[in-house]
């Protein structure tokens, strides 16, 4: 099987400051991978490099087996139709209504008529639990949680195989984050997506990820399951997972897991 994402020997340097030093990462189809790391450890930079928004100083980034930097523009354009990105603030186009925001990628294809686009938009709104009466609203009239859901609907409208989530639950209240997490989980199960996310939220991390990639000291110090990550004795991991907050979150999740053997829902 071709890995969905393959990062090999990646270096990132800003002047004298080295962010990534010989970093390697492979994400296989259907996996949910979480990138964690302290502030300034280069999580967002790595994600932007995988998205082709920034160029690494050295090394290759392959998505769906195709190198992003150095391929011709048409190939990269094709890859870009196969992934969806949820930005931290949603990044909905403020000049367009909710409906037009979701319809935009579909209309750009110029393959489908307006009736099809309408039904597709309604389907995606249903999928992310947004009532249809909000379709005509402008993004500035919406709450943060709704913006995230609509941004997710927009990211999913072209049926991507790969989805990037940048801090999917940041800025949402616990109830909202919980339902957002279960939304992503159910979509992942239904559509067999590959998900790469950057998150600081331990609850989200524990309940969604198959694999955890811990970025510290300019490289991935761990890449594996939660158990494997916790087993590594590194100051960042000790603080992040086994510190006071981490243990609280882990134990809460573990307890619930015991109560409900089928998971949390």
């Amino acid at each position: 099987m071709i890995p969905v994402i393959e990062v090999a020997g990646l270096w990132t340097q800003f002047g004298d400051h080295i962010v990534h030093k010989d970093l390697n990462l492979r994400v296989m189809p259907g996996e949910v991978v979480s990138l964690v790391g302290g502030s300034g450890s280069g999580k967002t930079t790595l994600m932007r490099q995988i998205l082709g928004l920034e160029q690494p100083s050295r090394g290759t980034v392959k998505v769906f087996g195709i190198p992003l930097h150095g391929s011709n523009a048409l190939m990269v354009q094709k890859i870009r139709k196969r992934w969806g990105v949820l930005f931290q603030q949603g990044a909905l186009y403020s000049a367009l209504s909710v409906y037009d925001n979701i319809a935009l990628p579909l209309r750009e294809l110029r393959a489908f008529d307006e009736d099809f686009v309408h039904d597709m938009v309604m389907l995606k709104l249903d999928m992310v639990d947004i009532e249809r009466r909000h379709a005509g609203k402008m993004p500035s009239d919406l709450s943060g949680g709704m913006i995230k859901r609509i941004a997710l609907a927009r990211a999913l409208v072209l049926e991507p195989e790969l989805v990037f989530l940048d801090e999917p639950t940041a800025g949402l209240d616990p109830d909202r984050s919980e339902s957002f997490v279960s939304l992503i989980r159910s979509l992942h199960q239904k559509l067999n997506l590959t998900v790469v996310m950057v998150t600081h939220d331990l609850d989200t991390l524990v309940s969604l990820s198959d694999k955890i990639a811990v970025l510290a000291e300019q490289k991935l110090i761990v890449y594996g399951s939660l158990q494997e990550a916790i087993a590594v004795k590194h100051p960042f991991i000790l603080n992040f997972f086994l510190g006071e907050r981490g243990l609280r979150a882990l134990s809460a999740v573990a307890d619930l897991g015991k109560l409900m053997p089928n998971g949390r829902n």
Partner: peptide, 11 residues
Amino acid sequence: NLDSAAGTAPG
């Protein structure tokens, strides 16, 4: 979930 998609958004 297609069967529910037929309804239109209130204009």
